[in-house]
Amino acid sequence: MRSPRRHPLLVPALLCALAVLAARPTDAMDEDGGSGSGTGIGAQVARLYEDAATATRQYEDGRREAEAQRAKAVEYEKRLDRQRQRIDTMHEDLGRFARAQYRGGGGLPLTARMILADDPEELMRGQRAVSRVDLAVSKAIGKSLRAEGRLAADEARARAAWQALEERNASLAELKKRIAGKLEAARSRLEGQADASVAAGSCPGAVRLDQPDVRLGRSWVSPVETYTLSASFGSGGSRWANRHTGQDFAVPVGTPVRSVGTGRVVKVSCGGAFGIQVVVQHAGGYYTQYAHLAAVAVDQGDRVGPGQWVGQSGSTGNSTGPHLHFEVRVTPEMGSALDPVPWLSQRGVPL
């Protein structure tokens, strides 16, 4: 099950955002100067992660706008076809009227027809009626031609807007590809450094990431924002001595991991089955654990709020792939775990 975040963006701002995004990843790549520091690469991954999400949202917004412009152009073309059909019908009607006039003596001068007519007054009345019909038909044709011109201009503008959006989307797609490549390389470096730290038994210092706006208006949140649930609480497997003690969230390396609620960091450690981990104490005697991290963003003793980043996901410790292992406990140590899914659900966080 996924829990995606969406931020609607105005398409006219795409070019500006494109320029900003194009610059940011380069700055992030150069920030640690190639020193390989865990702090530099962790912050770089976090920024690239946000850039990739922003580029994806921009691309999707642009794609939807391009589809709307394309549909508008198609609708204009249909209206033009209907307008042309009406004009063709009027031309055919006018042609039939002219032919009928010619067969009825319409080719003679009006004076000659009045002399030859049995009832000149009736002829004049007919002539005035014909003139009014001619005038009405001429006005209708003129109006239709002007309408066709306006429709054609609108259609041209719609097509031009659609083509501009297609070109912009192509640029965004290329940008997404470049960011994804840089992100993959940065994640690989972050994972390698995390594994080295765990192997050496030396925990890296906190990566002080630029925190998002955590004024969510909620007391509890999920530990990651976008995810796929994998191993569940109590499930069996060869990797665990007894049963699985938490809920796993399959996410890429470097995904920001959030504190699910207000609390205090009581443990930051690395090594062992959980690799790099953070434990947070909450009111009511509950503790939450965030394990298999690639980096931490807090130190022991820090106060955290719901949604605040406490680390970045990884695959350290006893792990077969990138994911977050999340536990809810009644003590800070393992062996006192509760099923985290109903626990979060009771606090308004369905997974």
Results as ranks from 00 to 15, higher is better:
Gly40Arg: 01
Gly40Ile: 06
Gly42Met: 04
Ala46Ser: 05
Ala46Val: 06
Arg47Cys: 05
Leu48Ile: 06
Leu48Thr: 02
Glu50Lys: 05
Glu50Ala: 15
Asp51Arg: 00
Asp51Ile: 00
Asp51Glu: 09
Asp51Gly: 04
Ala52Trp: 02
Ala53Asn: 07
Ala53Arg: 11
Ala53Gln: 10
Thr54Asp: 11
Thr54Cys: 06
Ala55Glu: 09
Thr56Ile: 01
Arg57Tyr: 01
Tyr59Asp: 02
Glu60Asn: 08
Glu60Trp: 06
Glu60Asp: 13
Glu60Arg: 13
Glu60Ser: 06
Glu60Ile: 02
Gly62Ile: 03
Arg63Lys: 07
Arg63Gln: 10
Arg64Asn: 12
Arg64Gln: 14
Arg64Lys: 07
Arg64Leu: 09
Ala66His: 01
Ala68Gly: 02
Ala68Tyr: 00
Ala68Asp: 04
Ala68Thr: 04
Gln69Glu: 12
Gln69Leu: 07
Gln69Phe: 01
Gln69Ile: 00
Gln69Asp: 05
Arg70Gly: 08
Arg70Thr: 09
Arg70Cys: 02
Ala71Asp: 13
Lys72Glu: 15
Lys72Asp: 12
Ala73Met: 07
Val74Trp: 01
Val74Gly: 01
Val74Pro: 00
Val74Tyr: 02
Val74His: 02
Tyr76His: 14
Tyr76Gly: 10
Lys78Phe: 06
Leu80Ile: 15
Asp81Gln: 11
Arg82Thr: 13
Arg82Asn: 11
Gln83Pro: 01
Arg84Asp: 14
Arg84Phe: 03
Arg84Tyr: 02
Gln85Glu: 14
Arg86Leu: 14
Arg86Ile: 07
Ile87Ser: 10
Asp88Glu: 15
Asp88Lys: 08
Thr89Glu: 14
His91Gly: 08
His91Lys: 08
Glu92Ile: 06
Glu92Arg: 10
Asp93Gln: 15
Gly95Asn: 11
Phe97His: 04
Ala98Cys: 01
Ala98Gly: 02
Ala100Asn: 10
Ala100Arg: 12
Ala100Asp: 14
Gln101His: 07
Gln101Ser: 15
Tyr102Met: 12
Gly104Pro: 00
Gly104Glu: 13
Gly106Leu: 05
Gly106Arg: 06
Pro109Glu: 14
Pro109Ile: 03
Leu110Trp: 05
Thr111Val: 14
Arg113Val: 07
Arg113Lys: 07
Arg113Asn: 06
Met114Ser: 08
Met114Asp: 02
Ile115Cys: 04
Ile115Lys: 08
Ile115Tyr: 06
Leu116Gly: 09
Asp118Met: 04
Pro120Trp: 04
Glu121Ser: 12
Glu121Gly: 07
Glu122Lys: 13
Glu122Pro: 00
Leu123Tyr: 05
Leu123Gln: 07
Met124Ser: 09
Arg125Ala: 15
Gly126Pro: 00
Gln127Cys: 01
